[in-house]
């Protein structure tokens, strides 16, 4: 699982991190034990290790991304997150992160369930399919194509798209309690009407 190349918004907060990762990093306490699923090039873990004294592992299936993690000194386990998190004993992590990858999972429910089992807290960032321009595209008869979702319908890695409201319903159905949410619009807080105006959403949650 690679993190969405589409998700590279403006860098946040001067640490060079992608906007959603910068917000996620803000939520993670210093010294935490972190598991980053679909960790991409390992940027979040590298930052957490150097700036916050965190430790942990990335999980990444892609060969190039694995090497990028290794070059950053990030410990990474090469595995498809959909093959299950059986290698990780529960509950062994303070935080489990899944950034801009949930829409690419086949067994989305299983992935979220396992996240909540191996970590005390889960953090997920996702593209908001409910963005108003998407509705406009659909009204005009086309599948939406945007910066966060740049793929044509016939050539997309994204399988499970949701609006922020769908996702919140889903978390509740899994018995998970939302403890924080941030809506971003082009990397900045979305302000008013976030369900329609945000391009990305970030949730933190715990088992109920």
């Amino acid at each position: 699982m690679t993190t969405g190349a589409a998700a590279h918004g403006p860098a946040g907060q001067g640490n060079g991190l992608r906007a959603d990762l910068a917000r996620i990093a803000d939520w993670i306490a210093p010294g935490s034990h972190v598991l980053d699923l679909g960790c991409g090039d390992g940027a979040l873990l590298a930052y957490l290790q150097s700036a916050k004294g965190c430790r942990g592992y990335g999980v990444e299936i892609n060969d190039e991304q694995l090497l990028a993690c290794m070059r950053k000194g990030v410990d990474v386990i090469q595995q498809d997150i959909e093959a299950g998190l059986g290698m990780f004993h529960a509950p062994s992590f303070d935080v489990v992160v899944l950034s801009m990858a949930i829409q690419m999972t086949h067994q989305t429910e299983r992935v979220l369930r396992e996240m909540s089992e191996v970590g005390r807290e889960g953090i997920v960032s996702l593209p908001n399919f409910g963005h108003w321009t998407h509705a406009w595209s659909l009204l005009r008869g086309h599948m939406p194509v945007s910066r966060e979702l740049p793929f044509e319908w016939f050539d997309t890695p994204n399988l499970h798209m949701s609006t922020v409201r769908d996702f919140e319903d889903f978390l509740r159905r899994l018995g998970l309690v939302i403890t924080g949410r941030v809506f971003l619009r082009d990397g900045k807080p979305a302000g008013w009407l976030p369900a329609l105006r945000s391009t990305q959403a970030i949730y933190r949650f715990r088992r109920g």
Partner: peptide, 21 residues
């Protein structure tokens, strides 16, 4: 190899695992 990785993860030890195709 994953058996070894799993044991190291259970201990929170530093480990990187590459599965070469």
């Amino acid at each position: 190899s994953r058996e070894i990785v799993e044991a190291l993860l259970a201990n929170g030890q530093r480990v990187t695992y590459a599965e070469i195709d």
